[in-house]
Computed example of a mutant assay.
Amino acid sequence: MFTTAWTASPQLPSEGFTPNWSREGFWRQSLRQTVRLTAGGHRLRVRLANDYGTSPLRIAGATVARTASGAAVEPGSVRRLTFEGGDGAEVPARGHLVSDPSELAVAAGERLTVTLHLAAVTGPATFHAQAFATAYRGAGDRLADVTGEGFDASSESWYFLSAVETDAGRRDGVALLGDSTTDGFGSTPDADRRWSDALADRTGRPVLNAGIGGNLLLNDSAWYGEKAVHRLARDVLGHPGVSTLVVLLGLNDIGFSETDEQPTYRPAPVVETAELIDGHRRLIRQARAGGLRVVGATLLPLGGSDHWGEHAAKVSHEINTWIRDGGEWDAVADLNRHLADAADPDRLHPAYDFGDHLHPNDAGYAVMAEAVADVL
Rank of each mutant, 00 (worst) to 15 (best):
L376I: 12
A139H: 09
V242N: 04
L358V: 07
W308K: 08
A107E: 10
D353C: 01
S30F: 06
D356N: 09
S9E: 10
V164M: 01
D190C: 05
A342C: 06
Q262G: 05
L339N: 00
N252M: 04
D87Y: 03
A268P: 01
N320P: 00
G138P: 00
R137P: 02
H357W: 01
S30L: 13
E328A: 12
S243Y: 07
V236G: 11
A68I: 10
S257T: 09
R234N: 13
E156Q: 11
A371I: 09
Q262E: 11
T3P: 07
R202S: 11
D306A: 14
T147F: 04
T166K: 01
G204L: 08
L116M: 11
V35N: 03
D260V: 15
V46P: 13
F83S: 06
A89R: 09
A289W: 04
I59C: 12
F17S: 14
E90T: 15
S9D: 11
A168Q: 02
Y52V: 12
R45G: 15
S162E: 08
D346K: 02
A125M: 06
E370T: 14
N219R: 15
R23A: 15
D278R: 08
G304P: 00
G138C: 02
G204V: 05
A274H: 10
G173H: 03
A49C: 15
P206G: 06
S187N: 12
E310D: 15
A108K: 04
A120Y: 09
H357M: 06
S162G: 03
A139M: 10
L31T: 12
F17A: 13
Q33N: 13
P189M: 07
G304D: 06
P345K: 02
H311R: 15
M1E: 14
E275W: 09
A125D: 07
A343N: 14
Y224R: 07
A373C: 10
P269N: 05
G309M: 04
R282H: 09
R293H: 11
V73D: 07
D235N: 13
V98Q: 04
V91Y: 05
F2G: 13
I277R: 13
T147H: 02
T134I: 08
V174L: 01
G304V: 10
T18R: 14
G250Q: 02
G85R: 06
R231C: 10
V106L: 02
N20G: 12
D220T: 03
E258Y: 03
A333L: 04
P345W: 00
G61L: 02
V174Q: 01
E103S: 09
A68N: 06
